[in-house]
Write a protein that binds this DNA or RNA. Structure first.
Lengths: 161, 161, 161, 161
DNA sequence: TTTT
DNA sequence: TTTT
């Protein structure tokens, strides 16, 4: 249940190959930056303007694995998620990073009809990344785990915002 | 025109009375923080969990004036806008703040059936804030101005994220 | 998984008390009509115009039960669902009705701060409607059932559209 | 202004080349059917299921002209619009058709990276359809006209729903 | 009637 | 850092 609505819908292009990691509980996490572009004609100068906005998107669970397999730098994608701001510290200074979280409650769609290197249709999946060993002996299946975690390091600290 | 989609939809409660300012071109800007809450049952402990997310919302133009007049601390509102991250500096360190921009292309709805102090229906408007004098002699009507500006100080620098 | 996106977001007022029924498998179904209103100034005549749009919304599963308990005529609600058109026949003539389906993949939020008859906050739940007997002996729990069914009679045949 | 929210977001494939017409006031209208598909695994039988939903989308104004020029049968597109049900009569019987209206307040994005017959990028525009003569002498530019009309014949009467 |  |  929710008291409130927190929904983000984006269509854009991926800035780099996704980084996929596995949490100690076996859940996959994938990070991606997504660019959305707006262009408009300035009313004063009449000049065409463009602004690109970069978004940090974090995928969890099964959807993160799909991202790791099929999404590449340049991919066009639709995502539906929710806004989440997390706090982190650097040199004793608090910083805040806002991300779009896409987990079981969200959605992801690849919109590339014909990917860069492919013939027709979707790109062949990339070789599955190795899951960490310590996850294997875990008695609980990964799917039963919580699909998202409020606090974790989704990006290196030296990445802006 | 846009190449891409950048859409945010929120329903939540306002954290404080809005701050309304006027840009040199006469355009109004209103800032508000909006709280959305999620609650869920933790699968491991079975405990009810709650997380509140705070969002920074910036309104421009006519919609900012409506916000200044009718929105108050505690108001429940629907907004539709777009994500925008701006860069600012403090003590020589770059910081980034992500906001939801609501301008002519977005939407705002007050969802309070009966506001705190009111009888029935919408609250009476607050006294109109004084527009700056320098805007009057401007030859171009404010409505003709661009409805949003990428870079400006929408919040004081010492406010987190 | 989905190839495509089919999403409807509405905020409006409920036209009548919801009708709740139970499918043979024990799943609840609730029907509601929801009114959304637009008003605009006609560019030719300068006159203020208003148009109310009525939507047929069908809820399934747990969310249908919540609707049956808390939603009443006049309630303001937010819903997120998907469009679905079903075919039915009358006097040998095929007709089509488009509805917004809200099930596990959708969302519903009551936006009434203070309902008509209540004191403060949400209305007290209405007495739970009796579930059909034949559902009891069913060996599969209702929650395991599919949350929505493509074809069923969600409204009487003589209701328009 | 609006009291309520009425929003539809679709991503799907176009069922046929768009039909573009011009209203007496010079405004363009384009009709398109859009297919969205869902697939899921049936919980009882374990079988993969698929359901395609067909949507009637009506574009008005400048966006209708873009549709007429660039959209073709099979095109993948994103649209944002609003639900509207109109009444029509056949053999003295009232019928209702629900459409998604996309006008100035909505959005359209072509998602075909590389269209069927093309080399790279967007398809070359189709030859502009002839505007009716009676629109030429009109002193008001088409863009000044109302962007949508509640009642009109957007499809032939013998098309279902 | 589309698409994978 | 993407894309057109």
């Amino acid at each position: 249940m929710a008291r409130g609505v927190n929904k983000v819908i984006l269509i854009g292009n991926v800035g780099g190959d996704p980084e996929v990691r596995y949490l100690p509980n076996g859940n996959a996490v994938a990070n991606v930056t997504l660019a959305t572009s707006d262009s408009w004609k300035d009313k004063q100068t009449g000049q065409q303007q463009e602004r690109t906005e970069w978004h940090r998107v974090v995928f969890f669970g099964r959807i993160a694995e799909v991202v790791g397999e099929y999404v590449r730098k340049g991919s066009k994608m639709y995502i539906e998620g929710r806004l989440q701001t997390r706090e982190w510290e650097k040199d004793g200074v608090k910083r805040y990073t806002t991300e779009i979280v896409v987990d079981m409650g969200g959605q992801m769609q690849l919109l590339d009809g014909r990917p860069q290197g492919g013939e027709q249709g979707m790109a062949p999946p990339r070789p599955q990344q190795q899951r960490p060993q310590q996850q294997q002996p875990s008695p609980q299946p990964a799917q039963q785990q919580p699909q998202s975690m409020p606090d974790y390091d989704s990006f290196d600290d030296d990445i802006p915002f």
